[in-house]
């Protein structure tokens, strides 16, 4: 039931922008809770890597006096990975195209993360 609701949030998020290629909700321990990923992408790796990056980001933000972590953004030549904390127990990961309009995606992801927070 909860998984369906989380998947529904992801589905809505992916529909808000053609620049969003995939998204997933992961526990802070790195376990996949819901995912809409391209075929062939390993869910376990996406989950564990996202949670690890968020954890490192959180640490970095604190160590470098940037306050509480909001997002971790990674840019590769084939696109973006955006990780956002959703409550204290989950991570929302979004994969976006290289020419994506990040401002809009940030807003949609923030909304989605708030919706996830209410469920986890």
């Amino acid at each position: 039931m909860r998984a369906d609701m989380l998947t529904s949030i992801l589905s809505e998020l992916n529909g808000t922008s053609a620049d969003i290629e995939a998204s997933a909700i992961i526990s802070t321990d790195g376990l996949m809770m819901a995912a809409l990923l391209p075929a062939g992408m390993d869910e376990d790796r996406v989950g564990a890597m996202s949670a690890a990056m968020l954890s490192l980001g959180d640490r970095t933000s604190n160590e470098l006096a940037r306050g509480s972590l909001e997002q971790v953004l990674i840019k590769g030549d084939k696109g973006y990975v955006l990780m956002t904390g959703a409550g204290g127990d989950a991570v929302l990961t979004v994969l976006a195209k290289p020419n994506a309009k990040l401002g809009l995606i940030f807003l949609d992801v923030k909304r989605a993360a708030e919706a996830v927070t209410k469920l986890v």
Binding site: T28, D29, G30, L31, A48, M49, A51, A52, R59
Partner: peptide
Amino acid sequence: SGMSRTLFNNLAAA
């Protein structure tokens, strides 16, 4: 890193 052992184990398992 601030990683929990559970997360590290899940990462290693993945």
